[in-house]
Structure formats: C-alpha cells, structure tokens
Nucleic acid binder design. Structure first.
Lengths: 364, 364
DNA sequence: CTGAAAGCGCTTACAG
DNA sequence: CTGAAAGCGCTTACAG
C-alpha cells in the first residue's frame, strides 16, 4: 500500500476518463479544489474565500457555465408592467419596440428573452418564485419601478434589475435607463420657433408620468429662452393616446386665437392631432405644424410623415441589457441611471406658419 | 420471509420517508413501476407499452411535471422568421401583435414565451440544439414554414411545431394556423361595390406570399360576382410597406381614368395610399376610398381611421398555442390547418364614390 | 417491455 | 474556509 502513487497527473497510465467538460468535477479539477467548493460558488454561498471564488468563477464562465442560470444558457426576463398608462395591455408600438430591442440585444449575446406581463403584485410574486427556481441573469422592467418590498425580494433571490424608462422619478435604489425627455421637449419647441411659430400649443401626457413632466418642462424652457410667453390656454393634458390627442387638438383649434403649431406628448397623440386637422379639412404643415414624441416605427406611416423626437428605444434596451450583465466588476455597475439622448427627426408635418397673409381656413 | 406483506399501502408502519412529490421516484411508486420506466417515458423512449406510458404520462402531468421541459415550468418557443417579406427585422406591428398574442395566451396557461429571431439555417440549428437540451413544449413559427430537413430535425428532437400564417401554401406536413385571406379580399371589395364604386383598384403584396395571392383572389372573385370587369391597369403589386403603397397609389392616381377606391394589400400600404392622397391635396373617403388589411392596432391612428379587414392576430396566436399543446389525445391533433375568419371593420376611410357630379379635384 | 444495478452530476450537512 | 462522505434525482446499458 505504501507503493500507491500520490495523485500526480502522470500516475495513471490511461488518463482516468476525464469528466465531461462542462462539468463541476472537471472545473474542480482545473481549479484544484473539491466539487463541493465549486458547487458553493455556483450557488452563491458565502463561505468561500474571495480568491478561490474568483478563480472558480472565471473557470465557470470559461466553460460556458452561465452564472445565475440553472438552465445552462443565458436567460433574461423582460417584465412588462401593465399600468394605468399602458392602455390596451401592450398593444402599444412603444412597448413592442422595446421588446424587440431587448430580444435583439440579448440574442446577439447568445441570450434568450423570457417575456412576462406583470400587472399585479400576485403576478410579480408568481414570476419571482419561478425565476428564482430556474435562475435568470436578471430582469428588465419596463416602466414599472419596483418598490422597497419588491426590491428586497429581488435582492434576496439574487436577481439584478434594471428599469427601462421608469414611470416615476428614478432614485438611487434601482438602476435605470431613460432618455433625455427635457431635451426632447426643448429641441422640438426650438425647431418650431426657428420656423417662425410663436403661438405654439403643447399637449402633455399624464402628470403622473415622470417623462411627461420632463417633456413639458422642455417646452417651457425653450419658450422662455426665446422670450416667448406661454399662453396657458394653449396648454393641454390628456392620455397618451390617439383619442387624447384628437380631443385636445379639437379644443385648441376651436380657440379664438388657435395655435399655428402643436407639440404632442407622444406619437399616438400626434396621430390624433392629425385626425382632428383632417376632420376639419386642415392640413399639416400647411395650416398647422405637428410634432410628435418617441419616433415609434409607425411615425413614418402618418400623412404627412411625422416630425418627431426620437427616443432610441433599441439602444435603451441594449444598454439596459448591458447594465444587467455588468453586475460584477464592471465600471457601469456603479452608475444608477443612464439617459440616452433624444434627437429631433424632421419630416413632413412641420413647416413655417401660415404667415400674416391669411390663415388658409376656407372650409369645403 | 413468507410473512413479508405484499406491498400494500399499509405494509409499512411508518410510511418510508416518502420522496419529494415532483419526483420520478414518487411517480414510479404511484404508478407501480420502476424509476427506469418513468424515466423512459419522460425521455420519449419507445420501449414502453402504451398502457404503462399512458398511466405514467397522466401521473407526470398531474404532478406538474411539464412534459417536454426539463425546466420544471412551461416554455414555448416563438421563432420569428426574418424573411424577405419582413423588411426591418420585426419592426412590424403585425409581427409584434403576434408576439403579444402568444405571450398572452401562454401566460394564461402559466407558460413563458422564449422569443428567438431566426434568420438563417445556422441560427435555426443553434436554437434547436439549445431547445432540445433545455426542453420546450414546442415551437410556434411565424411565417416560416419549415422544410423537410428542419422538420426531420424537429421530430428527432421531439419538438412539436405550429406555423402561424405560413408564407407558402400550407401542406399536411406541418400544422398551421392562418386566416381567411380570400374571404377578406372578397368582403372588402364587396363593401366598396355596395358603396357604389365600380373603378376599384387593388394593390397586392409580393406574389411569393401565399396570403397575398389569396387576398387578390378575393378581390377578383367579388368583382366577378358583381359583374364588374377587372381593369388590369388598376392592378398593382409592391412590397408590404408604406412606401410600396404610396408609390402604387401615385401611379394609380395619375391614370387617365383613376380609381375611386383603392384596396391595399395590408395596412402599411393603406397608410402609404393615404400619404399619396394627402400629398395631392385629396382626402379619403371624399375623393378616394381606401381599405387596408390586417387591422393592426395602429389602423385606428390613421387620418381618417382606416376601414380594414381584421385578422384576429391574438386569436391566431392563442389557437396556435393550443394546437401545440394538443399533441396528445386531443381532437385538434389531427387537423393540419386551421383558418380563423377575417372580418371587415368599417371605419372612416371608405364612403360612396364622388358621384357623377364632379370628381372634386380642384387643386390648391 | 420491464427493472436491478451502476453511475453521473450535483448538493448539503458536517467535521476539521 | 475547505473537502470527504452521504445522498438525491436522474439516466443508461444490459439481463431477462
């Protein structure tokens, strides 16, 4: 028995049928530790020294062991918050583009996206239990900013979250990706001013939405800077819907001194404004200029094609996805909120005001 | 040893620490077979008698053992075929609504949807390997009709498929869900005829698409039945895009004897037609009536709101989902192709023709 | 067609 | 902080 060789690599003539490559046993061997230890790292136990953990983590990653997933492949959860703002439960081009952007970014990274609509606390609970069990690389939450309780649960389950376009003011408790709404409102208004408009109306979305308030703020800022006073009668507020835009536009056009340009709160509202014009036999930009917000894909479908403020939806989704994965040691990890820039896209619905000549209102 | 009780439920005083309930061991015990046999059923082996298999299958299902999934919860794959028809890779309200419908139907059944864009054979291969490994309840393929080779692979992996709106003629080799495109084209045309139109133009989508041909067929059918001859100059063909619709409408409106109504191949084209009208200072339905096809959510965004043929996208997704799960013993299992009915949705873009009076073409 | 047996990959108390 | 040992859930040749 004394002759038994110590377990040197060469001790066995036939290399002892080395275990499957994606295997804990194999990784343990490579790392020079026991399987138990590897298992601990995999399960996020705390009783492993930082050094060992790091060494094992690296091997794990190298062997395509997707951390945070018991599935063997990367999964990211996309939670679709169905709030009071999303009217028809996701039948919203805006949300759809976000989904698409996420799927795109994830698939490029070899990940799959699990889409789950979450409209109640119970549904959230159910999703969480499932996600914790199967493992996930994290959750991307559209609009819904998880509160304290939810955050605690997510943390306990070790699930990172990034919120996309938080409905409320983003704080430091959750990471989030937004867009420069204030800038968007500002640049859209400046564009109209540069075209010569002075009577510029603005239709805002629900005040509960953070983005909505920021956009309106941008409008006020641009008016102020141009030395134009804001006529409060030209300010409207309604749902982020076609109907909302149509109703408010109708009101504005009935004013004794109607506006020559209307800044809508989002593209849906802008389509509504166009409908109101159309119903009166008026045309954009000839009679009234119209600007949208979002640059949803269908903005180019409008007649005329909509001048609008572009929100880089796909880039926002991609950034959120990257933030999610940046949990460990990345520099992005410490940034709580990122805002991507909006850009004004000038198309055919804006132009100079009718001018002093006549307001071109002949009916029929 | 003769005294050993046969294994009656009551034989053991203390019920031998019964194994976890979602467990093969447990199910084996319940079914009165060995774990091996249960394992075989679970893995789709053939060497199990039908009786035993059935008994075990039922227990498996009862215990929440999601058949076809090693994940412990239901997953359905949604494959987004990015073909020549889907221009901007999914930025298509039509596809988005299908995604949404699937997510909805699946989540009601407690399933999650894994969305994967598949644009090449290599990507399909990659998806298949992954799906086979993790297990899936099946794949829903949008537009793309898998060919012989793919079908063989899917079958080998034991993954059921249902195609939604097959791009080509659906055969008996794959199950599929479609919509009554011919009927849709027919009813839209009849609607225009009933309004008094006789010079009705039709813009068709790509002829490679099965649905596209069927819609055009419906148009021809309705014209024929009404005793109207089809003026071939009023027939156009272009991509399923806004641009396609705009271009063809421009051509049609330049005709010596322009149409009083235009039937578009889909809603995107209809928006394009509206743009062409708008650019000429014409309005729907006053000057020209316009009908779309699909009733995508944004159809109501048009100015005027689009009269269109509704494709029950959400219901199609739900049906496909149900067909997928109907693999075992369901009556639906034997049906290869299901077509859901289209319905004409009359909104504001159609009306009687300008009439004999004048064609209301005064410019400016 | 069925199951006993060997074995794989992983996890978890527990001793050090 | 680490790993030997026991054990769980599953699969797979293989004997009958």
């Amino acid at each position: 028995m004394a002759a038994k060789a110590t377990r040197e690599p060469t001790s066995a003539p036939v290399p002892a049928a080395h275990p499957g490559s994606g295997t804990l046993t194999r990784i343990a061997a490579d790392a020079g530790v026991s399987v138990s230890t590897v298992s601990k790292v995999l399960n996020g136990r705390t009783d492993v020294s930082p050094d060992t953990r790091e060494r094992i983590s690296q091997l794990l990653r190298k062997h395509g062991y997707q951390p945070g997933s018991k599935l063997g492949f990367g999964v990211v959860d996309l939670l679709l918050g169905v709030g009071p703002w999303t009217m028809s439960a996701g039948h919203d081009p805006w949300a759809e583009e976000l989904i698409h952007g996420t799927v795109q970014a994830a698939s490029e990274a070899g990940h799959s996206v699990l889409v789950t609509p979450v409209s109640s606390a119970a549904e959230f609970e159910r999703w969480l239990a499932q996600a914790a069990m199967r493992g996930t690389h994290g959750a991307l939450s559209v609009l819904h900013l998880p509160g304290g309780a939810e955050l605690k649960q997510l943390e306990a389950a070790g699930i990172p979250v990034v919120v996309i376009d938080p409905a409320e003011e983003p704080g430091a408790t959750v990471r989030s990706v937004g867009t420069t709404n204030w800038q968007g409102g500002f640049s859209a208004t400046r564009h109209l001013i540069e075209l010569g408009h002075t009577r510029i109306a603005a239709i805002a979305g629900p005040t509960t939405l953070w983005s909505s308030r920021a956009r309106l703020g941008g409008y006020r800022g641009a008016m102020l800077e141009a030395g134009l006073t804001v006529d409060e009668r030209l300010l409207s507020r309604d749902a982020f819907s076609v109907r909302g835009g149509r109703q408010q536009a109708a009101r504005l056009l009935d004013l004794a001194a109607p506006p020559t340009a209307i800044l809508a709160g989002n593209d849906a509202q802008a389509f509504g404004v166009l409908q109101a014009l159309n119903a009166r036999g008026l045309r954009a930009p000839h009679d009234v200029s119209v600007v949208g917000f979002d640059d949803v894909a269908v903005a180019t479908w409008a007649a005329p094609a909509l001048t609008t403020v572009r929100q880089p939806l796909a880039a926002m989704a991609a950034t959120a996805f990257r933030m999610l994965r940046a949990g460990d040691g990345d520099t992005l990890a410490e940034t709580h909120h990122v805002e991507l820039s909006t850009t004004l896209v000038v198309r055919d619905s804006t132009g100079p005001p009718p001018g002093a000549v006549d307001r071109a209102r002949e009916p029929r």
